[in-house]
Amino acid sequence: MNPFRFFSRAQSAPAARERLQVLLAHERAATGDSDLVNKLRDEILKAISKHMQVDDEKVSIKMERGAQVSTLAVDIEIPFDAGKKAA
């Protein structure tokens, strides 16, 4: 055990502070609309399923909350014959 490790260890409080600031900015904005990701996912899927059949399992949605912007990544696997099944 290195006795100097204690003194050289990186501070953790700044990370706590930053994580809280980002999280709370989002939570405050989302009052009453906390399920934004699920809502977006459902609506995007609905829009797509108008044109083709999509397997729910083949869809992945990722959300990354940042201080200034958030990103929503929707990844859908489109089968070859997808277009045929659309009416």
Binding site: Q11, S12, A13, P14, A16
Partner: peptide, 8 residues
Amino acid sequence: GDMLKVED
């Protein structure tokens, strides 16, 4: 720096 400060 291992605990949030009052100011934080």
